[in-house]
Design a protein around this nucleic acid. Structure first.
Lengths: 204, 204
DNA sequence: ACATGTGAAGGTATTCACAGCG
DNA sequence: CGCTGTGAATACCTTCACATGT
């Protein structure tokens, strides 16, 4: 395969493929064609083949793709090999929900540190971690944690993000309904739940 | 303005604009230019103007856009005028978080009915609603509720979705890490939190 | 003078159509 | 023959450049 720039959209779809493949693996499937995968995921079969082709020749012509191999390949592309520790900031309802959310594992992520600014919460044990004060964020660098999840109210989101960036975090998943400013080298993904709901009525 | 098909991407951005405009309104701003709005939202100014132009001439040349008017226009386009009742299925951590999530209001949505299949939860009061058994989903049609939010474990998601569709729901926001099958007339938006996190390491 | 609104240009992503290989 | 892999064609979206209206 010749080199070509990988479309952002392709990267966005890789985790989708990964989920579908994991599902097939759980079903005991060894091999899958782009057509079968397309049906499960509601994506075009050509799309799938083209996406994979950016990274190399993963399939066998006339046969399809080996499920296990493909999962490993995609995990490698997404740099999900091994487990990465992530910090969670904010232990309200949403934060608590995230702590018990299954599925981070598939993506090689584990919440290992938890912060909150509520004195009544600090020190409490939750999931596998102890809740620490917001000021301890500065110690993330020392602990080698590079990913963080923001689940605090909108007003505090930017200030938390600044602290995280200062502590050397380079990837942030933001659930606060607020636009975050961060240096270019820091990748921020915002999930605004209400905003997704907002476009639902349009399509109805 | 001549008629042209409205890009999906434009529709996806409308709620983003709405949030930015709401923010400006709260600040007491009466008028805004595409350039100012662009800075707040990290979107191109040309993009904003082009997007608005699909729906009509909302601005005043040499001046900008009237914040209040623009909000009303976008809300109308997204069919968010008035408040729509939505049903929530699943009152685990995530469901509870959603019940106390601020911001649904901006998008004209209100959770008015709550379902769960846990007998110890049924009958309890939560938010403004009483938790009802899953079997009561069939009564949604009678109550005129057309939107639903799924916050149940992956294994139950499809069966819940089927019940919702049978009850006449035509829009579903799905938080379960599972692909849902539904008739074309039913719009399903899936938010898979872990999947979003999954592409974070790639960019780092 | 200033900011919108918009054809035209440019860029990106998807789909087609089929060659290539097992 | 079946299914992958891919250049070419198409569709889609964004950006440019500027004409247009206040």
């Amino acid at each position: 395969m010749k080199y070509r720039k990988i479309p952002d959209e392709t990267v966005r779809r890789l985790p989708v493929y990964l989920r579908g493949l994991q599902y097939l693996l759980d079903q005991g499937k060894k091999s899958v064609s782009s057509i079968e995968l397309a049906e499960i995921l509601h994506v075009g079969a050509t799309q799938i083949r083209k996406d994979f082709s950016y990274f190399g020749d993963f399939g066998t012509r006339g046969v399809g793709y080996n499920v296990g191999t493909l999962i490993r390949q995609i995990r490698a592309i997404l740099k999900l090999s091994g487990t990465r520790g992530a910090a969670l900031v904010g232990v309200g309802n949403l934060g608590t929900a995230l702590l018990s959310y299954p599925g981070f594992g598939t993506y090689g992520l584990e919440i290992v540190v938890v912060f909150d600014n509520d004195p009544t919460k600090i020190g409490k044990q939750i999931g596998g971690a102890r809740i620490e004060g917001i000021e301890k964020i500065s110690e993330l660098k020392k602990r080698g944690i590079k990913l963080a999840i923001i689940a605090v109210p909108a007003e505090e989101a930017q200030s938390v993000a600044d602290k995280l960036v200062a502590a050397g975090v380079n990837g942030i998943l933001n659930f606060a309904p607020h636009f975050l400013s961060a240096p270019k080298k820091v990748k921020v993904i915002t999930i605004d739940i209400a905003m997704e709901l907002g476009r639902l009525p349009y399509y109805i």
